[in-house]
Amino acid sequence: MTTKALRSTILLPVFLPAVFIILLLVIGTSSNPELAGKAFSIALTWITETFGWFYMLSVAIFLVFIVSVA
């Protein structure tokens, strides 16, 4: 029986920065929820004012896709 070295399919140059950014967001939002709520509200307002109908269409298409998958 031969032993083969296990190779991971995780790409560290992609995985590590993603984990770092996610941890920063989780720590930041949990440490100051009021500021995070204001920032997310401002971001949502900017997205809806800037992209308008495209944003609403994207959300609707995503919702239809999720319902059809379920």
Results as ranks from 00 to 15, higher is better:
57 L>C: 04
17 P>D: 01
27 I>W: 05
2 T>Q: 11
55 Y>K: 03
59 V>Q: 14
30 S>R: 10
52 G>H: 02
54 F>C: 02
29 T>F: 15
35 L>H: 04
31 S>C: 09
70 A>P: 01
1 M>I: 01
11 L>K: 11
17 P>V: 02
16 L>I: 13
32 N>A: 15
47 I>W: 09
22 I>R: 10
50 T>I: 13
69 V>Y: 01
25 L>Y: 13
56 M>G: 05
43 A>R: 11
43 A>E: 04
52 G>A: 08
3 T>M: 14
45 T>L: 11
65 F>K: 03
31 S>I: 08
52 G>T: 05
23 L>R: 06
63 L>T: 08
38 K>F: 15
6 L>M: 03
47 I>R: 03
66 I>Q: 07
4 K>I: 12
58 S>I: 07
42 I>F: 13
4 K>C: 15
33 P>K: 09
3 T>E: 12
67 V>H: 00
54 F>E: 04
39 A>N: 08
8 S>I: 06
66 I>S: 05
44 L>K: 11
62 F>A: 13
16 L>A: 11
32 N>T: 00
65 F>D: 01
23 L>G: 10
8 S>V: 00
41 S>K: 09
26 V>T: 06
55 Y>H: 04
52 G>M: 02
41 S>C: 04
55 Y>E: 00
16 L>D: 08
68 S>Y: 12
48 T>E: 13
52 G>C: 07
38 K>C: 12
52 G>E: 03
61 I>K: 05
27 I>L: 06
36 A>W: 05
39 A>F: 15
21 I>F: 15
18 A>S: 10
7 R>M: 03
45 T>I: 13
50 T>Q: 12
62 F>H: 08
27 I>T: 00
47 I>V: 11
65 F>I: 04
66 I>R: 07
9 T>R: 10
41 S>Q: 06
43 A>W: 15
55 Y>T: 01
68 S>N: 06
10 I>S: 05
24 L>S: 02
